[in-house]
Design a binder for these strands. Structure first.
Length: 473
RNA sequence: GGCCUCGUCGUCUAGCGGUUAGGACACUUGGUUCUCAACCAAGAAAUCAGGGGUUCGAAUCCCCUCGAGGCUGCCA
């Protein structure tokens, strides 16, 4: 049985890296690479993996409920669901203490009475001597008297793990064989002096308790893995399979950070990216499908394979995300787009409007740019009206338009036909003829198609704007 | 500093001993067109980080160097 987990710590909002890690876990758990007519399909479906959500909130200073909410809400928004949880580590303290007690009894762990100050000093001295910083293990074999003394001083104590020096080797699903010498590690803390487990201990205990079969997480945890394997061995746990996915970088290949641009999912939501596009793009970061790059969740579940994940980190390239999102907007039916626009917080648009903005949009937040002229008076610099023609030429256009369109059927096709005739009559290129009209109607040299827009606006409103333009000239 | 991981067009990547090093985004040009998009066509863009090997032959295998990132916490 495949069981994976997503274990964010609520010290920040759900960000791109998190979301992608969840996606990869999700896809791995849900994948069934057999088509429905393959007899193995049913088997695969029945044995689909489970994904558990675990909140690693043991950093009491930085974890907030607000962040936890953001994480959960945005996962849901992305359409990423989980089968079990959320479990909070802070609700499970007794479990960790139980296992720590076991290690203590078996003399695989010990109490450490060192103060933060002493530890810092020790490290500083090592650094000064150009030695690798490593806990000396001074509390490892305290005498009875020393312990008594420390206890009398009322020192707080943490529980440390005795690191045995050996070569730890494991097979990473993405990187292949990786080996570490744990002799380079000092004894590390299992339970902090306030009784809360550290990251390493919490992870190992929970992964075992939750029967996690595959740990799929960011590559920043690769170097942490040997410590965790050591712990698993000491506790008699099975070691799960590991897959460390490459990190996401800024476009300049520096470490992804807020400084560079948006990293939180909520920001992308606010920018009007479709969830489909975000999911699609995240999958593309470090993984390549064989054929088309535009894939929905179903396609991804079908085609995704962990072996094809790239080893090297990928830079987050917004231009490509924009393209993916544009593709997704064009894949929607007008009715669907209409709903998305409303969900995003704008007013409900007439389907006729939707149809003309759809091929032009990359993101939902472009709606005002394309449509505001439909709903409010346009303001523009009168200089805009005159481009390749002189003032009198432009005047002539408005005059002829006002007189000739007064009774015509107000439909795109007839408007276009009539306009062509009028352009001919004035001996003007159609584009030159249309240009000032576009400005007068939309206020912008870039807009939705003129005649479609005019049909939607209606004769009365259009005439108002034409007259307005004429007055400006 | 030590340890680990990674290194193919600007970006995401295909490639797994013999390819004109392929595709996608972005970019440029042309077509279409009432503008902008969309769409179609073409083009530019990679001394495969560098240097040594192995081999008839290396982006692919080995070694070294360089560069980037990660870990080295009573953060996760």
């Amino acid at each position: 049985m495949i069981r994976v987990r997503f274990a964010p710590s609520p010290t920040g909002k759900l960000h791109i890296g998190n979301a992608r890690a969840f996606l990869f876990n999700f896809l791995f758990a849900k994948q069934s690479r057999f088509s429905s007519d393959d007899e193995r399909f049913l088997f695969a479906k029945k044995n689909k993996g489970k994904i558990v959500l675990r909140i690693e909130d043991t950093d009491r200073d930085r974890s907030t409920l607000e962040n936890e909410k953001d994480i959960i809400e945005n996962l849901k928004w992305l359409g990423l669901s989980w089968d079990e949880g959320p479990f909070r580590q802070m609700d499970r303290l007794k479990i960790y203490q139980k296992y720590a007690g076991k290690l203590f009894k078996e003399k695989k762990a010990y109490y450490c009475y060192c103060t933060p100050g002493e530890l810092a000093k020790e490290k500083e001295e090592q650094l000064l001597k150009k030695m690798p910083p490593k806990y000396s293990g001074r509390c490892r074999d305290l005498t009875f008297d020393q312990i008594k003394k420390y206890e009398k001083e009322d020192r707080r104590k943490a529980i440390r793990f005795k690191v045995t020096s050996k070569i730890v080797e494991f097979e990473d699903l993405i990187h292949g064989k990786v080996r570490f010498d744990t002799g380079l590690e000092g004894d590390f803390v299992l339970i902090k002096s306030d009784g809360v487990p550290t990251f390493h201990f919490g992870v190992v205990v929970d992964d075992a308790e939750m029967k996690i079969s595959h740990v799929i997480r960011g590559e920043d945890h690769l170097s942490n893995t040997p410590k965790q394997i050591l712990l698993q061995k000491a506790l008699g746990f099975l070691t799960p399979k590991y897959a460390h996915i490459p990190l996401i970088l800024n476009p300049d290949r520096s470490k992804m950070s807020k400084r560079y641009g948006a990293v939180d999912i909520s920001s992308y939501r606010e920018m009007g990216y479709l969830t489909e596009s975000l999911i699609n793009y995240f999958a593309l970061l470090g993984w390549t499908p064989g054929g088309t790059e535009i894939l929905n969740m179903k396609d991804l579940i079908k085609d995704f394979s962990i072996e094809n994940i790239q080893k090297s980190p990928a830079a987050f390239y917004k231009e490509k995300l924009d393209w993916v999102c544009g593709e997704w907007i064009r894949k929607l039916t007008p009715k669907e787009l209409q709903e998305r626009v409303v969900d995003f917080g704008y007013q409900k648009l007439d389907l006729k409007i939707i149809e003309i903005i759809q091929p032009r949009m990359k993101r939902l937040d472009e709606v005002p740019f394309w449509t505001s002229f439909f709903f409010q008076e346009v303001t523009y610099d009168k200089k805009l009206l005159v481009k390749d023609l002189d003032k009198n030429g432009v005047k002539a256009i408005f005059e002829i338009i006002l007189s000739q369109l007064a009774k015509i059927t107000w439909k795109t096709e007839s408007l276009k036909q009539k306009s062509r005739d009028l352009a001919d009559r004035l001996d003007l290129k159609f584009r030159d003829f249309v240009y000032p009209l576009r400005i007068s109607i939309t206020g912008n040299p870039i807009s939705t198609p003129l005649f479609e827009s005019m049909e939607i606006l209606g004769r009365e409103e259009c005439f108002k704007r034409f007259k307005n333009a004429l007055r400006k000239l």
